[in-house]
């Protein structure tokens, strides 16, 4: 589903964000990218959804070479990926329903599809009944659920999560992880960048560890260390 071949990414001329990274993630996998801040986790995610272009090497997603893809095809690539962030990136002037609906609206989905799919996904993330709230009226955990609902409403093949539990207390974080696991069980490939030990150790999933841009460990059913 996702394959990196000797990918190097530099910011400016000095800082190497990722050096010679290679891995292969199969469909339906759940993978943690771990390592301290600045070790290149976020950059890897940004390479996969083509917010960044590598300096060397190739990124393949769902059989397509992401780097050689025409600019005009990139939106269609991204429709296969859901993105979840530490800071949620919700739109404050839209309700829960509108935030999720927005993701379908801007890719041109007709109203009747939106009205059918949004309640289903809100039910799935446990926010049924809170459709008309605004983000500021929700707790952090609830806001993250809205953001997951938005990422998942189009049923993407891949879910990219960048520190989704970073702003949440442990108990709330567990709830989010349970949700991501549930989404993973529907066949969606999940790649999650984190430096949260407890989460990684509790889940026992594949772990790819980075240190200053270099992959130092790639282990099935790993722990954080």
């Amino acid at each position: 589903m996702i394959r990196l071949e000797s990918v190097t990414k530099r910011y400016g001329t000095e800082t190497v964000a990722v050096r010679d990274a290679s891995f292969d993630i199969a469909k339906g996998d759940f993978v943690f990218l771990v390592g301290p801040s600045g070790s290149g986790k976020s950059t890897l995610l940004r390479l996969i959804n083509r917010q960044e272009q590598p300096e060397r090497g190739e990124v393949w997603v769902a059989g397509q070479n992401v780097n050689e893809m025409a600019e005009s095809r990139v939106p269609y690539l991204r429709r296969n990926m859901g993105n979840v962030f530490q800071d949620y990136k919700l739109l404050p002037n839209k309700t829960v329903f509108e935030n999720v609906a927005f993701a379908l609206e801007v890719i041109g989905k007709p109203r009747h599809v939106i009205n059918r799919q949004v309640p289903v996904v809100l039910e799935l993330v446990g926010l049924a009944g809170k459709e008309d709230r605004f983000p500021e009226q929700l707790s952090g955990g609830e806001q993250q659920r809205v953001s997951i609902a938005r990422a998942f409403v189009n049923r993407p093949l891949i879910m990219l999560a960048d520190e989704p539990t970073g702003n949440l207390d442990p108990a709330t974080g567990e709830g989010i992880m349970a949700l991501l696991e549930e989404i993973n069980r529907t066949g969606t490939t999940v790649v999650m960048a984190t430096h949260d030990h407890r989460v990684v150790n509790a889940m026992r999933k594949r772990v790819i560890q980075l240190d200053r841009g270099v992959i130092v460990r790639d282990q099935e059913r790993g722990v954080y260390e």
Partner: peptide, 17 residues
């Protein structure tokens, strides 16, 4: 810009934006 960022991430085409 926040809206545009989200639009780009969920795969809205540049023309649509």
């Amino acid at each position: 810009r926040r809206e545009i960022e989200v639009m780009k991430l969920v795969g809205a085409t540049n023309w649509f934006i």
